[in-house]
Structures are given as C-alpha cells and as structure tokens.
C-alpha cells in the first residue's frame, strides 16, 4: 500500500497518544499514515513530534526544522504530516471544571478510520451489539432525527437522536429513551453528547479520535468528559472498554475495510441518515484515504 498522498488527510491534526500515558521525558514510538513517528512530552507538558530516526534518542537531538507540528489538546498529543490549520475543532465542555476528563482507552482496530466513525454514529446496533447496556430487544426502533452539515463550522451535526436504553439511569430501574447529539468535526474524529444520568440539564461528552496507522488499521482513542463524582477511574474506563470491546469484532468483520463512498455499494436505511451525510461530506472534501471513492 502506498503511503498517504491524500492532502486533505495529510493536512489534518491527528492524535498519536494520550499525554497521561506518556511518562515525562520518555520517547514514545508510534505510526501515523504509514510513517514511523517518535514523540516526547516534556515536563512542561509540551509535546515534540518527529519522524523516527536512529540518530535521535530524544527531542533535544531533533533540530527545530525537523520537528513536525505538535500540540497537546483534550489530553492527547496531536501532530500533522502536512500543513495543519491553526486551530483544532472545539470541545467547549472540556474546559468545564467539574468534569472528569480521561482517556478511557486506546484500542488497535483492524479497520479504516471512516468505518469506525460510522459505527460511533450508529444507534441501530445498540440492541444487538451492546445488548442490555445501550439497548435491548424488542426496543429496536431508530426514531427520526435531524442531520445537517454546518457550513460555517464545516462539521456534521445529528440532533434529536433518541434511543431506548435499559437501566437508563441509576435513579430509575426501568428503561427510557436517552438523548444523543453527534458531531463529526474532523474526518476521523467524532464527539457525542448524551443525557447525563446525574444532571438532567447537562450532557456527558464522549469523543473518539482515530489515529490512522494506514488505510485499514487505526488506533482508537476514547476521550471521556463526564459528570461523575463518585466512580473510580477504572470503573468509568471499564464501562467504555466493554462497549468498545463489543464493537471491535464487528468492525473487524466489515468488508471492504475501507468505507465505500459509492451510494450503491451498500444499502442505507433512514436510520443511517447521519452516515449518508458523512459519506457525502467525505466525498465533497475529496477524501481518498481510508475510503473507496465513488467512480467519477
């Protein structure tokens, strides 16, 4: 497989690792878009990223000209192999002081980044893949919801999403509809807002940031930014890891692994409105990496 030549993707910011899991001063090795990268987070929390080379054992041995763009955001180190925009997409809730913010997991998944995004946007699989957690038969209906592509923000927004969840909150023992809002502000990143079980007026934020190793392999970084003062970190993480562990085997059994953008490659239903919008958006942007572009 050729290295990435898709300039849309090359010019994006991409996550390469959780800051909390990088020991200060230690060099981490990773892969982004088929290139080997090294990064190091300084004691000041500032990351340095460079293309791996045998002569550099630490950031201080890498001349400034050879460093890649780098920044820390939402608990992760981000970099780019091209010319990234000045700003990363906003998640204002991340700054709210009473939220728990943590990297719930980083999972290797044998699938393209866009397939993983579609799975993140999808509610119809809750009763089948996350049985008795996010959904349960016979409550299988995906009710009508709204999707728009926001022009000024250049992101997909799905609102009025509702899905029946058994044990929806700790306060009641029955199931209820849970509200979701989904954003796709980046071809390989998505953010969801979900009714908080502890505060009716606010929403938990869960984001997925996909690090494309190549067209058909990703590392999925899961950010949690939730209202929960009681649970231990490991309990919160374990929940998300259970959910993602259920999605992983499904994602790895999807064919083709790259996301087909030809509308006739697969059969959409109304429940897939957000996925249809996502595929169109990728087509309009001219994304070719991790997808099978529609024949012109």
């Amino acid at each position: 497989m050729a290295k990435c030549s898709d300039t849309v993707i090359l010019n994006l910011w991409h996550p390469v690792g959780a800051i909390a899991e990088a020991a200060p001063g230690a060099v981490q090795e990773t892969v982004l878009l088929e290139e080997r990268l090294s990064f190091q987070v300084g004691v000041d929390g500032e990351p340095v990223v460079w293309r791996s080379r045998p002569d550099a054992r630490g950031a201080d041995q890498v001349p400034a000209a050879d460093r890649l763009p780098a920044r820390g955001a939402y608990g992760y180190v981000w970099t780019s192999l091209g010319s990234p925009p000045a700003d990363l997409f906003p998640i204002p809730e991340y700054a709210e002081p009473d939220r728990r913010r943590l990297n719930a997991a980083t999972f290797g998944v044998n699938v393209s980044a866009p397939r993983a995004i579609e799975n993140f946007l999808d509610m119809g699989h809750f009763p089948y893949v996350h049985t008795d957690i996010l959904g349960a038969e016979p409550h299988t209906e995906v009710k009508e919801y709204d999707v728009e592509i926001s022009v000024d923000r250049d992101e997909i927004l799905a609102t009025r999403c509702r899905f029946f969840q058994p044990m929806a909150s700790t306060a009641s023992d029955g199931g209820a509809d849970v509200d979701y809002v989904y954003r796709v502000p980046h071809p390989y990143c998505s953010v969801l807002y979900k009714s908080s079980p502890v505060d009716e007026s606010r929403r938990d934020v869960i984001a997925i940031f996909l690090q494309p190793l190549d067209q058909e392999h990703v590392r999925a970084h899961l950010l949690l930014c939730v209202l929960d003062e009681n649970s231990e970190d490991k309990v919160i993480k374990r929940f998300q890891q259970t959910i993602f562990g259920q999605d992983k085997p499904i994602l790895e059994n999807q064919f083709p692994k790259r996301l087909p953008l030809d509308p006739r490659a697969e059969t959409p239903i109304r429940a897939d409105k957000s996925a249809i919008a996502y595929r169109r958006w990728l087509s309009q942007k001219g994304v070719t990496y991790g997808v099978i572009p529609a024949a012109a």
Partner: peptide, 19 residues
C-alpha cells in the same frame, strides 16, 4: 450488527429492526 433477517432459500431481507 443490526439484526437484519434474511430468509432461507431466497436470501431476501424480511425484517429491519431499526424501522
């Protein structure tokens, strides 16, 4: 993934649980 059911012999989809 989504519980779509396909019938013996015809392979036709008989049920889409999301709708």
């Amino acid at each position: 993934y989504h519980g779509w059911r396909y019938s013996n012999r015809t392979a036709g989809c008989t049920y889409i649980p999301a709708h």
